[in-house]
């Protein structure tokens, strides 16, 4: 019989890893979303093709396949990455592809008149994007980004399958050590919910705050 405190402690250790993976991969995915989102809107044909390939390859093959590919295949090809990096890279690349589509469609959803007006006002392309288009596009992106962040959080549980000791990994280890299956997995589900819910609330708050005075 293992005490509840011992179970809780090792789950908390896993939670720290899960949050770390989540943090890093959100940053990577966000960066990739904007880079490839902008590239796919570029006039330069090569950039369009590159971003199209990136988006379709990473959306079209499954996240777990990508993680396993990075984990098992790269060492054979001579590249040895730590498990943490594999997890962050896999999650970031996968969700970055979904995010790139969101960035692209949100910018396209800004009314054309906004674009024309800023051209008529002789704004530089950079100024146009920064002061007129992006603030409006960002508001359109927010609800989808909120969903994607929750999807990413759920996706972090997959890193347990490439031996990173996250929340799910710790739970599986505890299961084989203590056989207290019911208790462990119930706590596990609740812990994930406790992480997810504030994220949803935070996005709702941000959306409300940013849409003030925007009819």
């Amino acid at each position: 019989m293992v005490s509840n405190i011992a179970i809780f402690n090792s789950l908390l250790k896993g939670l720290a890893v899960t949050l770390q993976v989540l943090g890093y991969s959100v940053i990577l995915a966000l960066g990739l979303s904007f880079i490839f989102g902008f590239l796919s809107l570029s006039k330069w044909k090569m950039a369009k093709i590159v971003s199209h390939l990136y988006i379709e390859i990473f959306r079209g093959t499954s996240l777990l396949v990508q993680l396993f590919w990075l984990y098992f295949s790269l060492p054979i090809l001579g590249i040895q990455l730590p498990a943490m990096l594999v997890g962050v890279l896999g999650l970031g690349l996968n969700y970055g592809a979904y995010g790139a589509v969101v960035v692209k469609t949100s910018i396209q959803a800004v009314p054309k008149g906004q674009f024309e007006a800023s051209v008529a006002l002789n704004m530089s392309p950079f100024r146009r994007m920064r002061s007129v288009i992006l603030p409006q596009a960002f508001l359109i992106m927010l609800p989808t980004f909120s969903n994607l962040t929750i999807e990413l959080l759920k996706g972090t549980s997959l890193v347990s399958l490439v031996t990173l000791s996250d929340l799910t990994f710790q739970a599986m280890a505890l299961r084989s050590a203590t056989m207290e299956t019911v208790k462990i997995f119930t706590i596990l589900l609740i812990l994930y919910f406790i992480v997810a819910y504030p994220i949803t609330l935070a996005f709702r708050w941000l959306e409300k705050k940013l849409s003030v005075g925007r009819g």
Binding site: I150, L153, K154, G155, T156, S157, L158, S160, L161, T168, A171, M172, R175, T181, V182, F185, T186, L188, L189, Y192, F193, A196, Y197, T200
Partner: peptide, 21 residues
Amino acid sequence: EFIKSTPLLVQLYFIFFVFPA
């Protein structure tokens, strides 16, 4: 809301390992 916010992998483990209990 709860099912949507928690990982599918954990739910699969739950069904596969907890239901037999």
